[in-house]
Amino acid sequence: MALAYADRSFRWVTLSPAALFLVVLGVLPVLNLVAMSFFTIVWKNAAADWQPVGLANYAAIPGDPLFSAGLRNTVVFAVASVAIQMVLAFFLALWCSQVRTGRTLYRTVLILPLLVPGIVVGAIWKLFLNPEFGFLGQMLGVVGLDPIDWLGEAQTALLAVIMVDVWHWTPFCFLLLLAGIEGLPRDVYEAASIDGARPWQEMLWITLPMMLPTILVTAVFRFVVAFKVFDEVYLLTGGGPGTATQVISFTIYQRFFTEDRAGFGSAISVSVIFLVCLMLVAALAVRARLQERPA
């Protein structure tokens, strides 16, 4: 059947701008990274001198302390912060959908941190967590406790960064989950309430299962953004103390830009792309498994 709205040329016209962007500004830079990763690039007489080094850049990656620490911390960071955010956001959304008065006000306030640039979040919390003059330190002082140097101690620094991320990004999950909850059909709840279900039973057996697709989508989306974390770390800790909060974005930034090792930085980037591909394939495989299972 010839569908006028799905006219062939129209199909191309509508898709090609996005394709153009994703190819020119997406594929080309990645290919450039792949090319650079086989070279050491030095500048002589104001011109780039590409010296081929084969796989040497890749061979050096396992020995790079910032790479292994960055990868480990990024995974810990992303998993922990997204998990905490999802749980918090789910309850906040649930509660917010249940109250009658002040709902708009709660919603406005709870979304607020999302609108603050990450760099500002870093600045705010760097001040706020300062053991000497920060608000938290002062409050601990008021109740007679020693202030804790959250960002300065290797044991607590990553935790502190995770908590800051939770403050910053829970609103995002909250927003999506709230939209999901408000979109749930009402009649199921009415039936449940007639059957005399308790609130927690309602949540466990009705809300949670029906929300599962939204929860999954939100979690995946958040995980993707958490994996790229950069701005907050840039101001909060700069990856330290030691390598306690080194994340992979920051490793790339340091190797590629600060130290100007374009070849090695590219090799790290390509390795990260490869790992991301593996994660995606794994995630898709899991999803396929889940879908095969009869409902």
């Binding site: 394709a19 994703l22 594929v27 990645v30 993707v224 994996f227 790339i252 930034y253 980037s269 991301v276």
Partner: peptide, 19 residues
């Protein structure tokens, strides 16, 4: 198309900034 855009979305932007 969607696979590439998803993968692309996961890449830290600092990687692309230089290019």
């Amino acid at each position: 198309f969607l696979g590439w855009s998803l993968l692309f979305h996961m890449l830290p932007p600092v990687m692309l900034a230089g290019a």
